Computed example of a mutant assay.
Amino acid sequence: MSAAALKSLLLEKSVRTGTFTLASGKESDLYIDCRVTALDPFGANLIGELGWAAVRERIAAEGLKIDAIGGMTLGADPISLAVGMTSAKQHPDEALQVFTVRKEPKGHGRGKQIEGNFKEGSTVIVVDDVITTGGSTIKAIDVIEREGGKVAFALVLVDRQEGGREAIEARGIPVLPLFTRKTLLDEA
């Protein structure tokens, strides 16, 4: 039921068809702005429930110990927080800490590029809202690894199925999408 409700909300709030220029510079017939759904309280709750269920299943299947969840700001932030909050509510002993990756290091203070609950040596899940080429996810992975973290896998709300998953997996990072273009749009 939660998957159907989240799909319906994504289609209503986040999916647009037409002609669009994406962040990658590519033109597409599909635009997906997951932030509108992820920042909706009902959407955030659904993302937390479905995301945590998928993550917990992956952790159990592979015997992983995960410390934290996060990704490139802004798209990953509400998703990471929703999954982290659900993990704390449902399984406090397995609760995931949450962090965010800045696009550039902060220009003052300690000059950090990762904010929140991340520390060197952490094993983490990297998050993205939508992957097309995988570029922003890979940038987040690079920052996490440079700061001494290990990425176990990537959690993605929507995989547009345009090569991003393959690019991330070529780095040795498995991708766990909640939806693909095909499943979201019921394409054959």
Rank of each mutant, 00 (worst) to 15 (best):
Val175Gln: 07
Phe153Glu: 11
Asp142Trp: 00
Met85Gln: 13
Val130Cys: 01
Ile173Arg: 08
Ile125Met: 14
Gly111Arg: 14
Val175Thr: 02
Leu178Asn: 05
Thr183Val: 05
Ile168Ser: 15
Val156Leu: 10
Pro105Met: 01
Lys7Cys: 01
Leu11Tyr: 12
Ala53Cys: 01
Arg35Pro: 06
Val130Lys: 03
Ile131Thr: 02
Glu145Met: 06
Glu166Phe: 02
Ala76Pro: 04
Asp77Met: 13
Asp159His: 04
Ala38Phe: 06
Gly48Tyr: 07
Glu104Met: 00
Lys182Ser: 10
Thr17His: 14
Arg181Phe: 06
Phe179Ile: 10
Lys150Gln: 09
Asp159Gly: 13
Lys139Asp: 13
Ile131Leu: 00
Gly135Glu: 12
Ala23Pro: 02
Gly84Val: 08
Phe20Trp: 00
Ile47Lys: 10
Ala95Asp: 05
Gly148Gln: 02
Leu46Phe: 14
Gly111Asn: 01
Leu46Met: 15
Ala61Trp: 09
Leu81Trp: 09
Thr86His: 08
Ala53Tyr: 11
Val36Arg: 08
Asp29Trp: 03
Gly63Lys: 12
Leu157Tyr: 08
Leu10Trp: 07
Glu94Gln: 15
Ala170Trp: 00
Gly70Ala: 12
Pro174Ile: 11
Ser14Arg: 08
Phe42Pro: 04
Thr17Trp: 02
Gly134Arg: 08
Glu94Lys: 13
Asp33Leu: 09
Val101His: 10
Arg56Ser: 15
Ala154Glu: 08
Glu57Gln: 12
Ile168Trp: 04
Lys7Leu: 12
Met1Arg: 11
Asp40Arg: 04
Ala154Met: 04
Thr123Met: 00
Gly134Glu: 01
Ala44Met: 05
Asp186Lys: 13
Ala76Glu: 12
Cys34Gly: 08
Leu184Lys: 06
Thr21Val: 15
Leu10Val: 04
Thr37Val: 14
Val36Glu: 11
Leu10Gln: 01
Gly71Thr: 05
Ala44Trp: 05
Gln161Thr: 07
Lys26Glu: 10
Asp33Gln: 05
Val130Ala: 05
His108Gly: 07
Gln113Cys: 11
Asn117Leu: 12
Glu162Phe: 01
Arg160Lys: 09
Ser87Ala: 09
His91Leu: 08
Lys182Arg: 13
Gly84Phe: 11
Thr37Arg: 07
Ala38Ser: 15
Lys103Pro: 10
Arg16Leu: 15
Asp40Ser: 14
Thr21Ile: 06
Val124Arg: 15
Ala152Ser: 14
Gly18Arg: 05
Asp129Arg: 00
Gly48Cys: 08
Lys26Val: 01
Lys119Met: 07
Leu6Gln: 04
Arg102Gln: 13
Phe118Val: 05
Gln90Ile: 05
Lys65Gly: 14
Arg146Asn: 14
Leu64Asp: 12
Val175Lys: 03
Asp186Trp: 02
Ile141Cys: 07
Gly116Ser: 04
Asp186Met: 07
Ile168Gln: 03
Ile79Lys: 08
Val130Glu: 00
Pro174Arg: 00
Arg165Tyr: 02
Thr132Gly: 03
Glu115Phe: 11
Val83Arg: 02
Ser122Tyr: 06
